[in-house]
Nucleic acid binder design. Structure first.
Lengths: 145, 145
DNA sequence: TATTGTTATACTCTATAACTATA
DNA sequence: TATAGTTATAGAGTATAACAATA
């Protein structure tokens, strides 16, 4: 007789806890988005555009894991607010390179700083536990990426 | 001279790694949704409706962290597919209780099982690290919830 | 011919406000 | 009058298909 049929091994248990942590953090993410008046996808796109670099629309679509046709609208709205801009590519006149504007870079930096703040559940954890968490995650991501 | 201005303390570093893990896992979540032809919010709603229990629309709205007006549509679509049903409440004829149907319970169980599978990065981790991860997360969530 | 980005279309999620039927 | 849920509306994300310009 199992209890609820889930979470047998420590890996699954850890994963279930991470999902819970993220679901409970949804309001916080939404609130940060409202602070900057940016939708989740706009945040995601801005995050990908490091100042001083350019990305073609196609690369943006791939990183955002959505169809290229959606990127047109996402870029339109960010460009409409002066946060990013479309530039022509030197070799191929079909492609458009996307880059943050100076204003966009400022917004991006403040936004990234807010997003980087760990949620209360993590921040309140004793340093030893934070380190254990960090080390295990570092190991996990080192192997996959 | 700092490296990139972020991730000073272990808590922030751990959080940044978790965000990375979740962002890299987006395609996987999207793929699971497609398998079942369910949108993220439909998945979330189905997850909340444990078989044998009922929830009023208002409770669903609160748990989904969205306006009550949205729940009407989300419930409409799940009900249209026969996965959940609206029932009258005994005392107050204004409220509608939501519950999974027998078919919905079957879909829900298969769905939850797929979602519970940890991503490769976690699954490939040595058991000792999985346990360290689980224990730290357990501690974090115990204090906040 | 093939590819990059756009447009057109249709569906889902989102919030706000106005509405109904109860209480 | 207050509350539970609905409807109306408008904006944003989503995929598919058709299209223009360029390769």
């Amino acid at each position: 007789m199992s209890t609820d049929g889930l979470a047998q091994d420590p890996g699954s248990e850890a994963w279930a806890l991470m999902v819970r942590l993220f679901l409970s953090g949804r309001p916080r993410i939404a609130a940060i988005g409202q602070e900057f008046d940016l939708s989740p996808m706009q945040i995601h796109a801005l995050r990908l555009l490091e100042p001083g670099t350019e990305l073609p629309m196609s690369a943006l679509a791939e990183s955002l894991v959505c169809d290229a046709s959606n990127v047109t609208g996402i870029v339109d709205r960010l460009e409409g607010r002066g946060l990013i801009e479309r530039r022509g590519a030197p070799r191929d006149r079909r492609v458009k390179m996307i880059a943050v504007t100076r204003r966009g870079a400022g917004v991006r930096e403040r936004l990234m700083k807010r997003m980087a703040e760990p949620p209360p559940a993590i921040a309140a954890l004793p340093r030893a536990d934070q380190r254990a968490l960090r080390d295990a995650l570092q190991k996990a991501l080192a192997s996959s990426s």
